[in-house]
Amino acid sequence: MPRTDAIVPVILSGGAGTRLWPMSRPERPKQMLPLTAEETMLQLTARRAPSDAGFAAPIIVANALHADMIVEQLEQTGAEPQAVILEPMGRNTAPAIALAAVAAGGGATPLLVMPSDHVIADIPAFHAAIAAAMPKVAEGWMVTFGITPDHPETGYGYIQVGEAIGDGVHKVSRFVEKPPRDAAEAMVASGDHVWNGGIFLFRADIFLAALAEHAPEIVAAAQTSMNRAIREGNRILPDSAEFARSPSDSIDYAVMEKAAQVAVVPVAMGWSDVGSWDALHAISDCDGQGNACRGDVVAIDAVNCLVRAGAGKRIALVGVTDLIVVVDGDDVLILPRGRSQEVKRIIEAMKDQPGK
């Protein structure tokens, strides 16, 4: 794998994952849960960039509330992070990555930015895409990895793939917001659009320079808050007042859509953002009736259901089709498959009910 330095994985673990309520909650979001395997999604993410494949120790950027949980889970994988940056408040991905770039020294070190709650089934394909990107990264390009689409998804952003600038590497022609159905169908049919998977590779100094040009308030807040941070071993607590000065913005809006040297590596690697219970069903191992059941579940004459029973709970289904049933603690979620994005309506409704 060509590189100027060992690649530093930057794992973003600040999300709340409320779309997978009731199992995912602010105090224990989806990246901390074993949703797709015996290990949690955070642990699986850390394993994608192991030291024996030439990666450096990771930098984790996370919610301060989850500090102990993150350290404990990473210890179980044998991963020793070089830094666990504990955000005093959420400010979206651009400021979070800026903290990591500063922590990495702000030089030519390549940073591989990964959300902590995605699935990548084909790790060799992922590593091959990283290797393809590295020569352009060394030259100062910022690279995103575009997921080869297999259906016209309206819940993802898209990237139009431009001219080739290397082996498997292309210029980005444009970023596209989450499209309506007809536009998504047209982009998939065209063959020159990929999903925006939110995974990036660039040098720390190049990213910070792009921020300084396009979003100077973000980089100023990140640098000052890190200069005044409290450090406890490998835990870094950026100064709260200084970090609060940062605008809240995504890396796409703040930098990637504005910078000149932005490239994309299209890759089919069994990716999913597991953004809903429907998405989890789609990537789960199902029985002969299409049911994905976990926990203490009895399913009789049930077809194409996703069923999750939390600790100490039993779920029994008879003669039902296309249901999502999730029980966690005293909370029960029941809804038809295909409507799991509407969990956000449940979250909003509960906010309006005192004591919920």
Rank of each mutant, 00 (worst) to 15 (best):
K171L: 12
L335W: 00
P354N: 06
A263Y: 02
A299C: 14
L111V: 13
D331F: 07
H281E: 09
T154S: 09
E242L: 10
L111I: 11
R91Q: 13
R91N: 07
A209C: 04
I300F: 13
M114W: 10
A189W: 05
I206S: 08
I147A: 10
G146I: 03
A100G: 12
R231L: 07
M23F: 09
W141F: 09
L335H: 00
P135S: 03
A302G: 15
D167T: 14
K171V: 15
A210V: 08
G162C: 07
M226A: 04
M256T: 04
G319E: 06
V169N: 00
V332T: 15
A183Q: 10
N196Y: 08
S246K: 03
S225L: 03
E72C: 07
P149I: 11
A46D: 02
K30M: 10
D352F: 10
A56I: 07
D5C: 09
I283E: 04
Q289D: 15
L20K: 04
D68T: 15
L306M: 15
M114A: 14
V332Q: 13
V219N: 01
A53R: 06
A46F: 01
L65T: 14
A189T: 07
H281P: 00
P266I: 00
A299F: 04
R48V: 13
E27L: 06
P22V: 04
D352S: 12
F200P: 00
M269P: 01
Q43D: 09
G288P: 03
V119G: 04
A309P: 05
E348W: 10
L42T: 03
S340H: 03
L201G: 00
L35H: 01
G146Y: 00
I97L: 13
V326F: 02
S24N: 07
L237G: 06
A282Y: 10
A263D: 08
T18K: 07
F145R: 00
G54E: 08
A186L: 07
Q31F: 10
R3Y: 08
L12Q: 06
I70Y: 03
N92Y: 07
L86Y: 02
W21K: 00
L208D: 09
A138W: 02
A183I: 12
A103S: 14
T4G: 13
V274Q: 14
N304M: 05
C305G: 03
P50F: 12
P149E: 14
V172R: 03
D287T: 15
Q289T: 15
V326N: 01
G191T: 05
V264W: 01
S284C: 04
R339A: 13
D52Q: 09
W141G: 01
L74P: 01
Y158C: 10
V84S: 08
A53F: 06
A129F: 02
D5W: 11
E153M: 12
A6I: 07
A229L: 12
L306N: 12
I120F: 07
I165T: 10
A260G: 11
G162D: 04
Q160I: 11
G155T: 15
G14D: 04
S284A: 14
S340Y: 01
E217G: 11
A220D: 15
P216L: 06
A209I: 00
V318K: 13
M89Y: 05
M226L: 11
M269G: 02
F202S: 09
F55Q: 05
Y253G: 10
A241H: 11
N304G: 15
V297P: 02
D249A: 10
V84K: 08
G275V: 01
P34A: 05
N291V: 00
T45R: 03
S173D: 09
Q223C: 10
A164G: 10
G162M: 03
V327R: 04
D352Y: 09
